[in-house]
């Protein structure tokens, strides 16, 4: 029986820049920041109101998982906005849209009524896009 998702990966192009975006723009908190073998950095963040989720901000770099070619392919997919990574929920989509926009977050679509709630879409500073959704009460 699976009970919950505790970790999920978002591939990023630069971990310092990604941390700045997720913490200072989205308002997330850093959960873990540990560097192994002087090179592999395990950096996780999460929404303050959801303490049991860690979003791993994983650097795309040639190494054990990626070879040079696949790392470059992955970076291009992210940069070109092909990686739709998840849905963030908010109690009020329009208010959060206005706040994030005022902080310089790039939106791909404005808040719009959908069958499942009000949704906008934005991208992080690597190029991953996300849904921002307000569920109906």
């Amino acid at each position: 029986m699976i009970t919950k998702l505790s970790h999920t990966t978002v591939y990023v192009l630069d971990q310092d820049e990604a941390m700045d975006f997720y913490v200072n723009k989205l308002g997330f908190e850093v959960r873990t920041d540990a560097t192994m073998n002087g090179s592999f950095r395990w950096l996780t963040v999460g929404p303050k109101d959801q303490p049991d989720l860690e979003i791993i901000l994983m650097l795309v770099q040639p190494g054990f998982l990626f070879d040079d070619q696949s790392a470059e392919q992955m970076k291009n997919l992210i940069r070109n906005g092909k990686m739709g990574t998840g849905v963030f929920e908010t109690p009020d989509c329009k208010a959060t849209y206005l706040e994030l926009k005022s902080k310089g977050v790039e939106f791909l679509s404005e808040p719009k009524q959908q069958p499942y709630g009000i949704e906008a879409t934005f991208k992080d500073n690597s190029g991953n896009w996300f849904s921002l959704t307000e569920r109906p009460e």
Partner: peptide, 8 residues
């Protein structure tokens, strides 16, 4: 599982 995939 992550350590073995990402760390040489």
């Amino acid at each position: 599982c992550f350590a073995t995939k990402y760390v040489d």
